[in-house]
Simulated scan of single mutants.
Amino acid sequence: MTEQQNKEVVLGFLRRAFGEKRPADAFAEYVGEDYVQHNPHAPARAGASAEYLAGFVARFPELSLDVRRVVAEGDLVCTHSLMRLTPGSRGSAIADVMRVRDGRIVEHWDVVQEIPEATASGNPMV
Rank of each mutant, 00 (worst) to 15 (best):
R15C: 05
R15S: 13
R15Y: 08
R15L: 07
R16I: 14
R16F: 04
R16G: 05
R16P: 04
R16S: 15
A17M: 06
A17K: 05
A17E: 07
A17R: 07
F18N: 05
G19D: 10
G19N: 07
G19V: 10
E20R: 04
E20A: 10
E20H: 04
R22C: 00
P23C: 05
P23V: 14
A24G: 09
A24R: 15
A24C: 04
A24N: 11
D25C: 08
D25S: 05
D25A: 13
A26Q: 06
A26F: 04
A26E: 04
A26N: 07
F27K: 03
F27H: 11
A28N: 13
A28H: 09
E29H: 08
E29I: 08
E29D: 10
Y30N: 02
Y30E: 01
Y30P: 01
Y30G: 01
G32C: 04
G32F: 05
G32A: 03
G32K: 12
E33M: 14
E33G: 15
E33L: 15
D34V: 02
D34E: 03
D34A: 02
Y35R: 11
Y35F: 12
Y35K: 11
V36C: 12
V36H: 07
V36M: 12
V36F: 03
V36Y: 03
Q37S: 10
Q37Y: 07
Q37H: 09
Q37N: 08
H38P: 11
H38M: 12
H38V: 02
N39S: 09
P40Y: 03
H41C: 11
H41I: 12
A42M: 09
A42V: 11
A42Y: 03
P43I: 14
P43D: 06
P43E: 02
A44L: 13
A44F: 12
R45H: 13
R45E: 09
R45V: 04
A46G: 09
A46N: 07
A46M: 11
G47W: 08
A48E: 01
A48D: 00
A48F: 00
S49Y: 12
S49V: 14
A50W: 03
Y52Q: 08
